[in-house]
Write a protein that binds this DNA or RNA. Structure first.
Lengths: 256, 256, 256, 256
DNA sequence: TATGAATGAGGATTCATTCAT
DNA sequence: AATGAATGAATCCTCATTCAT
């Protein structure tokens, strides 16, 4: 498993990090997310038979499935290929999941949970640092994570624009929502601390940061997205240099 | 036909607008693009039989094909569906194009040409205005164009992350390359005119602007990309208000 | 199942009958054949699903497939026709074999094995008889076998000159190689026993015998190959008479 | 154009060389051939439109068609490919020939005529030489001719065992018949001159010679037909050496 | 006479899903 | 619980032939 965009990270971060000050905003958004979870709750689950499998077998199935989905997207992912790579009977996968759709949703949900677990500690460490330092570390953490789990990242990229993905809108919404939930408190805190100009629109800033960080990850993982900075799979040193330049530009622009 | 990202616009803009000061850069990049054009030149063309069809029939075929590709992406687009929607025999489409790949490349090329033609005048009008005004108009023009030609935009979004798209890298590269060719001279000029701080990295700025403008268009056309600004298919007034906020934020950040 | 050329017979014969005196030759040739078997080993097999079918169903499939291939050759044989004659779903044949090529190779291999089994006993009976008698019996056995299994013979004839047959060269080579392995020891033994002139080139003799026996079988099974001897599907008595004349001519030579 | 088996040569030779002594035989066989010609007469012809083309264009069409048929056989030869290689309209070929079948028959007939013309002189030169020398020269001439016109030879090989070739039996019969007409007089003459034993069956000898010469040509042109003599595309010197060995073996007979 | 667009059946192969064992 | 054979519609693509221009 190899990659994951910053959005995933933000998402995971946000699971714990929702400052009380944003409760009001959260309520509105949470309701949307809650509705959507309720809708999905019934369909995300694997069948009992899957949960009864040995953890090892469960993990193997998840790994192969996430690999297939990340390479092919939803529609082109092949159940045939998955079972043949697993060496299990074709019927078995239907013992575990009712159909392709539910397998996909389970896999997607699993990926999201993984991100959450992995990044808990990253969040804690940066909590009290200046806002621009936190942005810097967030982007670096995103790159590190997606390097370590490229398949998760690929899966996200695939469903992003593929049509006929079940619950596509809900899935993307959930990622964007948590990205927002991560960035806005961060910016708000920065403003309160006097690190960010008070006359800027906080929503627009969150939007802009999300866009740039997302593209930075894409440029790192996909060829030809960036044609002049040389981001694509560059060395760790170069990554850090570029992230510094990015934060610098932000600062000079945004800082009071 | 419904949508097209800013990249497309930039591409078209750039066809004419390459200031002499960037010649050196252009030489390197142009070589890459030239090689790729040479490679593709042979394969983009429709068969003579297609060109001999009545303009009306040609247009119908292009419309249906671009619609199919924009909805399904490359792999999932179905030649069967295209011919049945056109009401022609399955074999006929192979009279016009050697195979699915060449049909796709023709459609893609056609879309690019369309953008180029449409935006020539937009470029001219903004030529002597301040840099931030030009950025504002560029983004607005992008939204207008993608509203008028949503299928072209969809097609771009589809191939962006789909695997197994023929010449995918070349296609994306060509778009990114022209986006760069549009933005960098614009920023360079702005710097020379003293509208932009001289201590900023021009490459990084171009990267950031490209990312934000691209995301703005996505947020306008796709639901759930933006979860809090309310960009998705908002009114023209709201679009203009948001673009103004964006430019404002840029200015305060970037202007000297 | 109806026919098989002498080459097939020779091949089968040779499996057991390799006199020690030819070991040296055998080593070189065996290596070639071994390499080719190794290469093919991986591709000849049916899928497990086929082997799990009832023997009756397996046999029906083999019969219909061998019939189709023998009538149409490789390229023109139609999977569609095969499944419709079998009354099974089109997808089913792909449960048993990965593709047309592997079905063909399985059928070919099956035919070869059949020949081997059938002819073991023929070989044993002729072992200690004079060389010309053995040649006589070999040709007669070939005709008998090909009469009983005409489809196998037809299949061989088809691939012989068809282009684009997978592994065509290897298949033909394997047949020719065993034909050689059968005839040369036989001639060598005849020479040692003083039944054959010692001043003749043993390689050329094998070549000539192979050519004539092959054509004899063709003339028996195909109309118009022989236009004056009346071999085509003649009575058993006539076959024996003609074979005797052939052996007689061989013995005496042509010159006065 | 590249290849043609000895049968073709014999056929052409025979057009002139039918000794009176064989008239009785000829009558029987000729009747068969005559009937078949009558049957074919109506269908072999190209349409007037073809004959009105410039000789150059006619020749180009024939060359491309014979090339396609020789490589693909009858069924797999593609009219589409022929017209596209010729650069003419698809409809045009149907102006010249009513359908694929008639094009093929025309091509086949043309090939036969070519052989006849080319070999007239070869026949004359060998007329008064000893029978074994004539056989030697015939085989050598066959190899030379097939080397110079491999496509004609390939065509013959293809139709030999392909099914669904129109008039297949008649075509093969015609070749075999003329092969017989060439070899039998030659053998008869040899017998009368006392060069061949009088107690041999002349029909069987013709059959045997035809088989061996045919195979020799095959072994020269196809890989793996001969596995130990090394005939395949060997040097001219080696060809001559092998032909000499062959004639020698014929002369002496096999028995000690 | 020449053109070439139109046809639609046919080719091999893949697919998600079902269900009897 | 696990199996894997069966399904048949769907995929892209090729073909010989026709016919209006």
């Amino acid at each position: 498993m190899k990659g994951l965009i910053l959005s995933f990270i933000s998402w995971a971060f946000s699971i714990l990090q929702v400052p009380p000050i944003w409760k009001q905003l959260d309520k509105g958004l949470s309701r949307i997310y809650y509705d959507h979870l309720v809708t999905m709750e019934l369909k995300i689950g694997a069948k009992k038979t899957f949960l009864n499998l040995s953890p090892d077998k469960q993990r193997r199935i998840i790994e192969v499935a996430i690999d297939e989905f990340s390479q092919k997207g939803y529609q082109q992912a092949s159940i045939n290929k998955i079972v043949s790579r697993l060496g299990i009977a074709k019927g078995s996968i239907y013992q575990y999941f009712n159909n392709k759709r539910e397998l996909f949703l389970y896999i997607f949900n699993y990926a999201v949970k993984m991100v959450g677990k992995t990044l808990k500690q990253v969040k804690k460490e940066s909590e009290n640092q200046p806002v621009f330092e936190r942005l810097r570390q967030s982007l670096l953490a995103g790159i590190t994570f997606t390097k370590n789990h490229p398949n998760i990242y690929q899966t996200y990229l695939k469903i992003l624009f593929e049509s006929d993905v079940p619950f596509k809108n809900e899935l993307i919404q959930s990622i964007r929502f948590f990205s927002l939930k991560y960035l806005m408190p961060l910016l708000k805190t920065g403003m309160e601390r006097g690190e960010i100009r008070k006359d800027l629109d906080i929503n627009m800033m969150a939007f802009m940061l999300d866009a740039m960080m997302d593209r930075f990850l894409q440029a790192y993982h996909l060829p030809f997205i960036d044609s002049h900075l040389g981001i694509f799979q560059c060395s760790q040193e170069e990554v850090e240099r570029l992230v510094n330049v990015w934060v610098d530009t932000l600062k000079r622009g945004l800082s009071a």
